[in-house]
């Protein structure tokens, strides 16, 4: 990367692109910001220290007390999918919104028409073949053990997405085998399922997403399975979406640009 600075300089002259190292002009602004940040740091340090050292509140006792009713043994999973499941539902909704916004900003690409990157070499291709099945296996393991040990839908979904990203980077265009409506459906599946199940419970006289105590574990595992698939597909779509064909000017350095 020793040439990056030269590239930056050249770019500055030719296209007005901002060099990476550029700082906002005005030394006074930077000094003021630095002093302000230092003052803020001291104030925040005092306040945060006071909270951490002296405030002995917290929800640990309540969470541990009701853990038996939650249907899972891992307290974090119990909070995520039982005690505060509305948070998780809305979070999955945020992911759907982000995917929609990312693709709405593209002028000519749709979810399934983004082109393949250039093919990787033999080593990358073989490594992909070895790693992707392991990642999928690891995702399934994390999902399964999330009910009683660290792990769960979010981590498993992230591993799924990572497998998809590696496939993408190795130059394979997995999207050509997937129907666009199918991928859209998978991304929105968890949001829709949680809303539907929540409303179903409400018609049975319970609160939104309040599971029947006897089958809470089963419901949580089903929702986690759906959430894993949706989160994985959503995070993957975010990467595909920010990895489109060049907008505007065509790439000019593709001849040696093997770093994608």
């Amino acid at each position: 990367m020793s040439t990056t600075r030269n590239q930056a300089k050249a770019a500055e002259m030719a296209t007005d692109s901002t060099p990476w190292a550029a700082v906002r002009s005005g030394r006074s602004l930077r000094v003021t910001t630095a002093v302000g940040a230092a003052v803020l740091a001291s104030v925040l340090a005092v306040v945060a220290f006071d909270v951490v050292m002296n405030d002995k509140g917290g929800l640990t006792p309540q969470a541990m007390e009701h853990l038996d009713e939650s249907g899972v043994e891992n307290p974090v999973t119990a909070v995520l999918l039982n005690f505060r499941s509305v948070d998780t539902w809305l979070e999955v909704g945020v992911l759907v919104l982000a995917v929609m916004s990312v693709f709405a900003l593209h002028r000519k690409n749709s979810l399934t028409s983004s082109p393949p990157v250039q093919r990787g070499g033999y080593v990358l291709s073989r490594m992909t073949g070895a790693f992707v099945p392991l990642l999928v296996l690891g995702a399934g393991y994390l999902l399964w053990r999330g009910t009683h040990a660290p792990g769960g839908a979010f981590q498993a979904g992230a591993l799924f997405a990572a497998a998809g990203v590696i496939v993408r980077l190795s130059g394979r265009n997995a999207l050509q085998y997937i129907q666009g409506w199918l991928l859209r459906g998978v991304i929105i599946l968890a949001f829709a399922c949680m809303a539907g199940i929540g409303i179903l419970f409400m018609t049975a006289g319970r609160n939104f997403l309040e599971y029947p105590a006897a089958h809470a574990g089963t419901w949580i595992f089903l929702l986690e399975l759906v959430a894993t698939i949706s989160i994985g597909a959503g995070l993957w779509a975010l990467f595909i979406g920010t990895h489109p064909m060049p907008l505007g000017r065509p790439p000019s350095r593709t001849a040696n640009g093997t770093d994608t």
């Binding site: 917290g58 929800l59 640990t60 969470a63 974090v76 909070v79 995520l80 505060r84």
Partner: peptide, 8 residues
Amino acid sequence: QSDPVPQA
């Protein structure tokens, strides 16, 4: 056990 609510 550390507080599970902030973790979630």
